[in-house]
């Protein structure tokens, strides 16, 4: 399935990743889905609550996640995934990303090299939840 990222969501993710460099940033992705495509309309930054090395890890708090689900229900939009940055690393999902991944979600990763966006890729678990499959991103 194609992943369409609208310009405002793309810009929000990029600015957040650069602002938080050299730490990893993270946030939620909202939008809608049809049989042909998943459309990311909004990216909403949240605080990286990881204790310790935020340069190599991110964590979203339970309270922030709970509020994100409630926001989606209240506004009749879909919570479609999360984004995070990989400072000084490629936008490749790591073994650690895979271990923590949930079904259905798109995991958008922004590679930030020397405070500049170098690459953006999106990953989603396969049907068996055993490995990531790269999603084709279309900017719209």
């Amino acid at each position: 399935m194609k992943l369409i990222i609208q310009p405002s969501a793309e810009e929000t993710m990029k600015q957040h990743a650069i602002k938080d460099f050299p730490d990893e940033c993270c946030g939620f992705l909202y939008g809608k889905e049809s049989d042909e495509a998943r459309i990311i309309e909004t990216a909403v930054p949240v605080e990286n609550k990881k204790e310790g090395d935020k340069k190599r890890r991110f964590e979203i708090s339970g309270i922030d996640y709970m509020r994100a689900e409630q926001h989606a229900l209240k506004n009749k939009i879909d919570l479609l995934g999360v984004y995070h940055s990989h400072p000084q690393h490629p936008a490749i999902a790591s073994e650690h990303d895979l271990k923590q991944a949930m079904p259905f979600f798109s995991y958008v990763i922004l590679s930030v090299m020397d405070k500049k966006i170098d690459d953006i890729k999106s990953w989603k678990l396969n049907e068996e939840n055993t490995e990531f499959i790269e999603e084709t991103i279309i900017y719209h």
Partner: peptide
Amino acid sequence: VSIVPAIAGGSVSIPTW
């Protein structure tokens, strides 16, 4: 009642690190 999955990850896997 909210059921909340852990959302976490990072650029370097533990074995690599």
